[in-house]
């Protein structure tokens, strides 16, 4: 399609579609704002600076994991081992920090090793899925079992505490602002820088039409491996946030988060088929899951009904996310 025809199509389709096309995360943003308002209506206290900071520091790990998932989904792949990678990095850094004495040097050293470990997990997934051409869903499930095995080897039972320096920093304040705000700012900067790279465009091209991307001369296999590596990197960052929040190591902590990360990607308005994704949407999608959970609590739902109402609400927003996303792409 030539630029001119796109222009005319856009002007004919009206303003809303143009907005959706430029900011595909808008529906997710509306859902987040609505959920915030509902939370406030049921419990004004839930909108206080303090509880919002708490919500952010609790769900920062899921935000990171959802963003990790977004990069593989961009290329039309999926990573069911993201949660296992998170667990592995979580136990590895806790053990390393303890072993190296728990000082500032130990924390930095452990985090660097954690990033390296995340990247290695990602590259393994990339090789298995893109180079060996196994089906992504089953192959990354198999690697997730493998990674969980290594995590259990590193720390057989949950409970080893992280050094105080680590979680005090994450949960504390810096220059009068909660530390998690700096994490968010750094994340925003990182996402902005990444969005300028060729890799993100290449991932989307591969996800949109693998054959066409190949015929234009893109190294499709390499691009997909890089996508998985990026996923591993963000899974490691997710592990840091989780460790800061829980202050301990748990070899099975991430298992349940994998499917939530996929849900958050869809909630954000990305297409699971690839080629059309939004990292900001995934961030909002992860927040949506957090806000739904807190809303169900603040509404005074009886405790035994909470999981059911949460499940139902998430199913409904998932449907809304898919429908709105399709409207935007149509």
């Amino acid at each position: 399609m030539t630029p001119t025809t796109t222009e005319t199509l856009r002007s004919r389709a009206g303003g809303l579609k143009l907005w959706l096309e430029r900011y595909p995360f808008l529906p997710a943003l509306i859902i987040v704002v609505a959920l915030l308002a509902l939370n406030g209506a049921f419990s004004p206290n839930s909108l206080s600076y303090r509880s919002l900071t708490g919500l952010l520091s609790t769900y920062m790990a899921l935000i990171m994991l959802a963003i990790a998932q977004t990069y593989v989904v961009s290329a039309g792949d999926i990573d069911l081992s993201a949660g296992a990678t998170l667990s592995l990095v979580n136990v590895a850094i806790v053990v390393l920090m303890e072993k190296w004495g728990g000082g500032a040097g130990a924390v930095v050293g452990a985090m660097l090793s954690g990033i390296l470990l995340g990247l290695i997990c990602g590259v393994i997934n990339g090789i298995v899925v893109a180079t060996l051409r196994l089906q992504a869903i089953v192959a990354t499930f198999a690697t997730s079992i493998f990674f969980t095995g290594i995590a259990l080897y590193v720390m057989p039972v949950a409970g080893t505490p992280a050094p105080a320096l680590f979680w005090r920093t994450y949960g504390g304040r810096l220059l009068g602002l909660p530390f998690v705000f700096y994490v968010l700012a750094a994340l925003a900067l990182l996402l902005f820088l990444l969005s300028r790279t060729r890799l993100v465009t290449q991932l989307l091209a591969v996800g949109d039409d693998q054959q066409a991307a190949y015929q234009t001369g893109l190294p499709v296999v390499l691009v997909r491996v890089k996508g998985y590596a990026l996923c591993g990197l963000f899974s490691a960052l997710a592990a840091f946030c989780l460790t800061g929040d829980t202050a301990s190591g748990d070899p099975l902590v991430g298992g349940k988060m994998t499917l939530y990360s996929v849900a958050a990607v869809v909630l954000g308005g990305s297409a699971l088929a690839g080629g059309w994704t939004t990292v900001v949407g995934s961030l909002l999608g992860a927040l949506t899951i957090g806000l739904v959970n807190s809303l169900v609590f603040f509404m005074g739902t009886p405790s035994e009904w909470q999981n059911f109402v949460q499940g139902l609400a998430i199913l409904l927003v998932l449907m809304a996310g898919v429908l709105a996303g399709r409207r935007a792409r149509a």
């Binding site: 699971l272 999981n307 059911f308 139902l312």
Partner: peptide, 26 residues
């Protein structure tokens, strides 16, 4: 609604797990 099966059944899994908690408590 043309929801992708992975998403639809994933959401349904959440509902079912919630339902299990309800039944088990009752």
């Amino acid at each position: 609604l043309r929801i992708p099966p992975l998403v639809m059944t994933l959401g349904m899994l959440g509902v079912l797990q919630g339902l299990l908690v309800v039944i088990r408590n009752g």
